[in-house]
Amino acid sequence: MADELKKLLNRNDLPAMIVEIDTTFDIGNYYVTWMTFRVTDFYDLETSPMPTAGLACFIHSKKLQASHEYFLNMVNEEIPELKSATNVLFCSDEEAAIVNALEKVFPNIPRTRCHIHTWKNIKLKLRSLGVTGKSSLKVYKDQFYQLINQKSYVEFRAVLRTFSLNNWSADFLKYFKANIEPDINNMGVWSLQKYGVNFHLSTNRAESFNALVKRRFMKPRNYGEDDIILGSSELVRRQVLRIRRARYGIGESWLLQKEFRHLYDINREDKLNPDDDEDQHELDTEQIQSQDVLLV
């Protein structure tokens, strides 16, 4: 999977790659953190979003910054090209251990904050301030999304001033300025457009990958670490094969961008891409054909 990631780094002909990091729970007496990435040579359509691939996972007993630094340093050791990549954007929730570890190990890669987790944090704060009714919470939710969908930071500030003058309490405004506004310039749609992203981002895709893990391991909840590692390896192996199948247009709904399809003709005999390894192409073809029954 590292090879799949490397193929997409520093590409000017592809959108920015979103790398998501999220921790899942309730699998065993430990946590599992996954780093996933979006395979950007596919179209990202409403009916067929680009595939999300699992890059690396980390099993840990405590959610410590030092632990996540160890994990990220291992990723950096295996893929040193990632640290200087110019087309990568990290997306995570606001878990301090992950955020601080990312800033330390990958200081030059920008990070955006998941809008879904941000709203959940805001809702918890509002409830602590006595705002519990569904209609009242919906007003704040609509206002939050109105703020991050502005066209510029200047417009964000103007709208925020309107909300703070009209119906925001002093306590909530203080919380927002201290805990949400510092991340706005990495979360608002206006700031994401320079990465070719025209919508606010979340870690939903990483959590969807976590759902695959949970469906594989939740019952009977007595899996050891070795089981998680072996099972996760199988999930990733199948995902690699599915991505390769999709590039060759075989049995998958993911749609490869049109300008790259001539590079993946399963019957081709000539070498169209000078960077291709012909032996690897033949191996990929054999693997894809041999997996037809297994993966369709």
Rank of each mutant, 00 (worst) to 15 (best):
E207Y: 08
E155F: 14
F176D: 00
Y43D: 00
F90C: 08
D275H: 13
Y31I: 07
A158G: 04
T24W: 00
T132S: 01
L102Y: 05
A56D: 05
S164H: 09
T40Q: 06
F71K: 08
E81P: 14
Y43T: 08
K120D: 03
E20G: 14
R38G: 00
L241E: 02
T24R: 11
T86K: 15
D44M: 02
G133N: 09
E20F: 03
W119S: 02
S61V: 13
L294R: 14
E94Y: 08
R245F: 01
L256R: 03
E94H: 13
R127W: 09
K123N: 10
L212N: 02
V293C: 14
N76E: 07
W254C: 00
E103L: 15
Y70V: 15
F209G: 07
Y70P: 09
N29K: 14
Q150Y: 04
Q65D: 01
E225N: 09
T33W: 01
T112F: 03
Y30D: 02
A101T: 07
L102P: 13
A16S: 13
T285V: 12
L192Q: 08
S208D: 07
I79N: 00
M35T: 10
S164E: 05
I228R: 15
I98Q: 05
M1G: 10
D41W: 05
G54W: 03
K138A: 02
L147C: 09
T33Q: 00
S290G: 09
A97H: 02
T118H: 02
E94S: 11
Y175V: 08
I109T: 09
L235I: 04
E95V: 13
Q291M: 12
Q150K: 04
H281Y: 11
R38Y: 03
I180F: 03
L9H: 04
A246V: 05
N108A: 07
R216L: 02
V105M: 12
L147I: 05
F260W: 08
F58K: 10
W119H: 03
K258P: 00
K194P: 10
L82A: 08
D26W: 13
Y140H: 02
Y175S: 06
N121S: 15
K62Q: 11
A96K: 10
D93P: 11
D226M: 13
E69I: 15
D292T: 14
V197S: 06
Y31W: 08
F106E: 10
K174I: 10
N149D: 01
N204P: 03
Q257Y: 00
Y175I: 06
N73P: 07
G224S: 07
E252S: 01
L137T: 08
L256W: 04
A206N: 08
E46C: 09
